[in-house]
């Protein structure tokens, strides 16, 4: 199976371990990732602030490339996913306004959780689990933009999504129920209104702990970064210890496939996941 791949700026920078683990998972599942040639930034959380047109033109350039490539398009970053989906819908409505050439929408866009949570892939995933992550208790944290708004994301259940829960179960995890799956972490306010991010991300850590989770599992680079890199500040502010590793879903899938042991990505984390994984006999 060949799939086009739009890593986006984060996966080439701060979220490099997400990129590495997506590639590792796809290698195991025999999915060839073809990085979109000469892709550019989608404008993410910024372009739409100042300019509605720019907020379509930036992702539309990438969708035009994806259309020429003709394969399904895998987009691991939630912000990129939502902006590309938005552009795709605009292009289907009036391609000539945005790009040269026709546009049929040949490249169906998938975010990580919905891409892997397909009946045919879930079976292959289960077959490839060498070491089920038994006893590892975690919550699935989706954040905002892979789900909302559903008129853009086409999410099946934006208020209570389940694809990541299904995948965590497929690799043997103990998935804890909680009601914060799609609550906001504060996202791009991280530099400009850090206090807001500490409060929102702190609420998530608190709720995860209450749910009995030993870690949070996400597939959004902004969520991962806010919860992981700011956890020490949040602990200091609240006078509490959380010590909750924040995993990318794909890191744990690769671990269950037996690929994660020697992986360099655990060292990229601020909250060191090694003690927890070692304690479970998984590392």
């Amino acid at each position: 199976m060949e799939v086009s791949y739009y890593p986006g700026c984060s996966l080439h920078g701060m979220a490099v371990e997400y990129d590495q683990s997506v590639r590792a998972v796809c290698r195991t599942l025999n999915i060839a990732l073809c990085e979109l040639p000469d892709w550019s930034c989608c404008g993410a959380s910024s372009a739409h602030f100042f300019d509605d047109e720019l907020a379509v033109r930036l992702p539309a350039r990438n969708m035009a490339i994806a259309e020429r490539e003709g394969r399904e398009l895998l987009v691991p970053c939630s912000a990129c996913f939502q902006r590309l989906k938005h552009a795709d819908k605009e292009l289907k409505e009036d391609a000539a306004r945005w790009i040269d050439g026709p546009y049929e929408g040949k490249a169906a866009i998938y975010h990580v959780n919905e891409f892997f949570d397909r009946p045919e892939l879930i079976e292959i995933i289960k077959q490839n689990v060498k070491k089920p992550l038994r006893g590892l208790a975690g919550v699935a944290y989706y954040g905002c933009l892979s789900q909302r708004p559903p008129k853009i994301t086409d999410a099946e259940d934006a208020e209570n999504p389940t694809p990541m829960d299904n995948l965590m179960r497929a690799i043997g995890m103990d998935v804890r129920p909680w009601s914060y799956k799609t609550d906001c972490c504060g996202a791009s306010l991280t530099l400009s209104r850090t206090g807001v991010v500490r409060k929102l991300s702190g609420n998530l850590l608190e709720a995860a702990q209450e749910a009995g989770a030993e870690c949070l599992v996400t597939d959004c680079p902004m969520c991962q970064s806010n919860l992981d890199t700011r956890q020490a500040e949040i602990e200091a502010e609240r006078g509490k210890q959380y010590n909750l590793p924040i995993f990318y879903l794909t890191e744990l899938m690769a671990l269950a496939f037996g690929e994660g042991k020697s992986a360099g990505w655990w060292k990229k984390h601020f909250v060191d996941p090694a003690p927890l994984l070692r304690g479970k006999g998984l590392l």
Binding site: S40, C41, G43, A44, S45, F50, S188, L191, S192, R193
Partner: peptide, 20 residues
């Protein structure tokens, strides 16, 4: 003001390099 400056800095970087 800081929120504005953040998004300006972000977009300036994309305008310069094509990627952030």
């Amino acid at each position: 003001e800081k929120v504005v400056k953040f998004h300006e800095a972000f977009l300036d970087s994309v305008r310069r390099h094509g990627r952030l």
